[in-house]
């Protein structure tokens, strides 16, 4: 019981720190600007009322994957590494509090901050869609759910990387390179090699937008071979909805276990 209470205390102060450091407000501002951009571009260059409700809703869902990545970087990148770099670990760690309590207390604060940002964005998308179509497609709600699953797993994965390093900036940069380049390269190479990238979290996150495809949820091809000329074939893979969720949960579980164990043993030298 006391572990849970201490975890809540960690969450509370970490969240307070996000607010004081203006990180949360900065990301909320960025999100608001993106919302304004999406709305103004779609209204100015098109007519959302003439689109299908799924098309209107998916306009918003497209960016939520990137927003989750930004959120994970903002709140997770240096969460653990920063304790070593800024020597705050000397203040926090020599106390009667277990390391996993600190780890998960911080994680929940990051998750809460990320959820606030994501909710602002996705609720704006709901309002936008409802304004033009007077309805919200169920696909949008699923897409929201998948976005949150992605946030939970990507944040855990980011925390794992944060435990590897003792410099917050290095941790943040490595994680950013990983999400924006490495995973995309892996996904691309897998297509050429005709190997389903079931081990890639960005591949799994594809379900956030795939849910809008077809006439019903899950109505899309799992794989599609494209002949690119001169004997070259590319296999485009799309994860099943259940598969995407399973991969993301797998990332969460493995990252959570390894991250917690590493932090448990990590020393303040």
């Amino acid at each position: 019981m006391s572990d849970l209470k201490q975890m809540w205390i960690m969450t509370k102060y970490q969240f307070k720190n996000y607010m004081r450091a203006k990180r949360l407000y900065i990301l909320l501002l960025i999100t608001s600007l993106v919302i304004a951009l999406i709305v103004s571009v779609n209204v100015y260059f098109g007519n959302p009322s003439d689109e299908t409700v799924k098309k209107t809703a998916s306009n918003f869902a497209n960016f939520s994957e990137i927003l989750v990545v930004l959120t994970a970087l903002f709140f997770g990148g240096d969460a653990i590494a920063g304790e070593y770099q800024n020597k705050t670990g000397y203040f926090l760690l020599p106390n009667p509090i277990r390391r996993y309590v600190i780890y998960w207390g911080k994680y929940f604060a990051s998750l809460l901050a990320g959820a606030v940002v994501l909710l602002l964005y996705l609720i704006s998308g709901m309002l936008y869609t409802f304004y033009f179509h007077s309805t919200i497609p169920p696909e949008y709600l699923y897409s929201m759910l998948y976005s949150f699953v992605f946030l939970v797993s990507l944040l855990a994965f980011t925390y794992l990387f944060s435990t590897f390093f003792k410099n917050g900036a290095v941790a943040l940069t490595i994680v950013a390179i990983l999400y924006f380049f490495v995973f995309n390269i892996i996904d691309g190479v897998s297509q050429i090699a005709s190997v389903e990238p079931w081990f890639s979290i960005t591949y799994a996150a594809g379900i956030i937008t795939l849910v809008f495809q077809g006439s019903y949820m899950g109505d899309y091809l799992h794989s599609q071979v494209i002949h690119a000329g001169k004997g070259l074939t590319i296999t485009v893979y799309n994860p099943y909805l259940w598969e995407g969720v399973a991969i993301m949960l797998g990332y969460f579980i493995i990252s959570a276990i390894i991250g917690t164990l590493i932090f448990q043993r990590k020393e303040m030298k």
Binding site: Q6, N17, K87, P94, I97, M268
Partner: peptide, 28 residues
């Protein structure tokens, strides 16, 4: 046990009162 190891860093956006309250709460 109260500890002072090296010169610790502090969460720079918190005040001394908040930091010490945080410690009291963590230490229950």
């Amino acid at each position: 046990v109260g500890t002072l190891i090296e010169t610790p860093g502090f969460y720079s956006y918190l005040t001394p009162v908040e930091l010490l309250n945080m410690l009291c709460e963590i230490r229950m």
